[in-house]
Nucleic acid binder design. Sequence first.
DNA 1: TTAGAAGTAGACCAACTGTTCTACTTTCCA
DNA 2: TGGAAAGTAGAACAGTTGGTCTACTTCTAA
Lengths: 185, 185
Amino acid sequence: MTPRTSPGPRERLLAAGQQLFYSQGASVGVDALLKEANVARRSLYEHFGDKDGLIAAVLHRASAEDLAWYENALAGATEPRARLLGLFDRLDELVATPDFRGCRYFATDLSFADPAHPAHAETDAFRRSLHALLVRELEAMGHAHPERAAEQLHLLIEGTLVVGATQDGHHPGRAARDLAAVVLD
Amino acid sequence: MTPRTSPGPRERLLAAGQQLFYSQGASVGVDALLKEANVARRSLYEHFGDKDGLIAAVLHRASAEDLAWYENALAGATEPRARLLGLFDRLDELVATPDFRGCRYFATDLSFADPAHPAHAETDAFRRSLHALLVRELEAMGHAHPERAAEQLHLLIEGTLVVGATQDGHHPGRAARDLAAVVLD
DNA sequence: TTAGAAGTAGACCAACTGTTCTACTTTCCA
DNA sequence: TGGAAAGTAGAACAGTTGGTCTACTTCTAA
């Protein structure tokens, strides 16, 4: 019942944070977040404690969404090897998006020099999940060294994101895909 | 003459900026910079106009130093192929440094959402120089597709830096070196 | 119907930001 | 020796930051 016709302030804050933290960086002001979310100042502090709490919550949510994106990208094919190669095709499309600005998690890590900041726990968790996902796929295709290969694929993914974010016109996904094919053999 | 026994305020500001912008990010306060450089407030604004001017100048200087680092890393061998592979060995050592925090230029790009910020011109220039350096080496070894191979090597370098900055205990330089060997053939 | 929870709106605060300015000192060259 | 240039020290300023607080409204469930 009461299917909540429109999302509440908590949801709106998370959505606004996800968008603004990505496009502007973690330094966006609280005022901008409140305005974008159309939410009262008080609601932010009631729901998340402080700005850092919102940042961590946004990363937590984005992490789940991004992992789902990876799963979806893999689902483009059924054969294990084709699944992983297809991932790089999808990455190539992703980084070509006009407002692509690189990996949310690495950007967050760079924003907070203090290693005790709660955001780092979220970015670490994301990377571990991504690594586990890659290992799972590699094991499914019977790779001889899944751990090592996963690290190499991860390196190719990060490289693709950075090059995609900093250089226009390139197709880093294609370059990475060629190298990924080597890793898989 | 007057070999300037100790570096002047300009040099001290550049050195302090190079260190603090890297370790703390571009958001370090002017006060911290002045204190670290042991320089009067006024000197900063006389020499660099404003904080952004210092940021650009620091990047300009770091760019030259970092390119020299790449040249030096290549100089570990004479045979063209060994030169490029040796670069990844040096990168592997670099990212293992305890205070390594990733690529200065990518971090800077992420810090300034405004594409008109003067820092972006410096990071672009650095990347172009690095690309040219890679192309030069690939041509020297008679590679069939120097431009394409340079993009792949660049991707491997960026991936190495990101993984090195975010995951401890890994040896991304080794993983990248294996893949670089494939690129070179 | 009504009490209480949740939300809005916005004033307010202390701390900090980059920047400008004034006054004094050092350096160095003609 | 003298005087301009460059440097230091630090007060002051306006704008912004994250965060708290009060007063009012809306929703909702007993």
